[in-house]
Amino acid sequence: MPLTFLEEIHPNTYIGLWKIEEEPAVLEKQLQLKDHEKEVLKGLNTQKRNLHWLATRVLLRKMLNTEEYIDCQPDENGKPVLLNMPHHISLSHSYDYAAVIISKDKRVGIDIEIIKDKITRVQQKFMSPQELSFMDEQYAIEHLYVCWCAKEALYKLNGKKETSFKDDIHLEEFPYQTKGVLKGSIHKEPLVKNYKIAYRKFEDYMLGYVYEEDEE
């Protein structure tokens, strides 16, 4: 499971990316799974889903650098949380990659997606007309994936099921580049919170991640 990169993006806040090349049994041996986690694995109906579940947790263990059991379970909204450690976490996966972001003191979100042109068929479901108006025609598919990853990362940071990508998560206009930072916000009356979301393209994938900054 070769490390693609591990980077500190803010004090006590790290992102990690791994390429998945092992069989599920190899990954499972690196974890200390309890019976309830083994039941979750049994419920995953494809080897790829099995690999993704295991790989994100192996990467999480490596980033936490611990030999202790990691009690990672979904909360009432399905967001993965650590019950026996203080860190905030977010997990993602797509095809051959697993991605994790951890922070000791900040809420976080991460998303990784393989880039495919089918995203154009669903763009109106997660993008507002104003957001669609600033898509770069030359790099429309990549630009859409930046927006998707940014909104998914914000959704995961927020951790509330009722949050709508199109109606509640808004992105400011930004030019497409292969790596950059854009501004976004979550609007859930009566609150509006602003964020800076970082992204980067590598190979045929897009990665987006965000952490909650200190109040000014």
Rank of each mutant, 00 (worst) to 15 (best):
A153P: 14
M63A: 10
N194P: 00
I186E: 04
L54V: 10
W18C: 08
Q73E: 14
G78Y: 00
L64D: 03
G184D: 07
G159H: 09
M127T: 15
Q32M: 15
I102Y: 09
E76G: 08
I15N: 01
D105A: 06
L27P: 08
E162D: 13
L41M: 12
E137T: 13
N84R: 11
E173P: 12
L132I: 06
L171V: 08
P11L: 10
Y195L: 08
I186D: 11
E67G: 11
D75F: 08
P175Q: 10
D204Y: 07
K116P: 01
P129M: 09
T46L: 05
L31K: 02
F165N: 06
I169K: 03
K116G: 05
H187G: 09
G184L: 04
Q123G: 02
M1E: 13
D105E: 14
I70S: 00
I101L: 07
Q124V: 08
G180F: 02
A99I: 07
R57C: 07
A25L: 15
A153H: 06
L144H: 05
I89R: 00
P74K: 10
K193A: 14
I9Q: 09
S164W: 07
G16C: 01
P175E: 10
H52Y: 08
V100W: 09
I20N: 06
F134H: 15
V210K: 02
R57A: 03
Q177V: 13
K38W: 05
Y95F: 14
W18G: 07
T4M: 14
S103C: 03
G159I: 10
K118P: 04
L157C: 06
Q138G: 13
M206F: 04
K183F: 13
E189R: 07
K116M: 01
V81Y: 05
E7S: 13
A150R: 01
E67H: 14
I15P: 03
I197K: 00
L82W: 03
Q123C: 10
E189C: 01
K79Q: 04
K161P: 08
T4K: 14
K38V: 07
E23I: 08
H170T: 12
D167T: 05
T56M: 08
N158M: 05
L6N: 11
Y69P: 11
I141H: 10
L191M: 09
V26S: 15
K161Y: 09
I169V: 10
K48I: 05
I110T: 01
H170K: 15
S103T: 14
Q47P: 06
Q32H: 13
E212A: 07
L54W: 05
L59G: 00
L31G: 10
E212W: 01
N50Q: 15
V146K: 01
R121S: 02
E22N: 12
A198S: 15
N84I: 09
P175M: 05
S92I: 00
Q138P: 03
E215C: 10
T46F: 04
H143I: 01
E67R: 12
Y199L: 03
K42E: 13
T66K: 13
Q130F: 11
L54T: 03
L144C: 11
I169W: 04
D35R: 12
E131N: 01
I89Q: 00
M63Y: 06
Q130R: 14
K201I: 12
R121I: 02
S133P: 11
E7N: 13
E215W: 07
R57L: 07
R200E: 15
P129S: 10
E189V: 06
D136T: 04
L54Y: 00
L44H: 03
V181L: 06
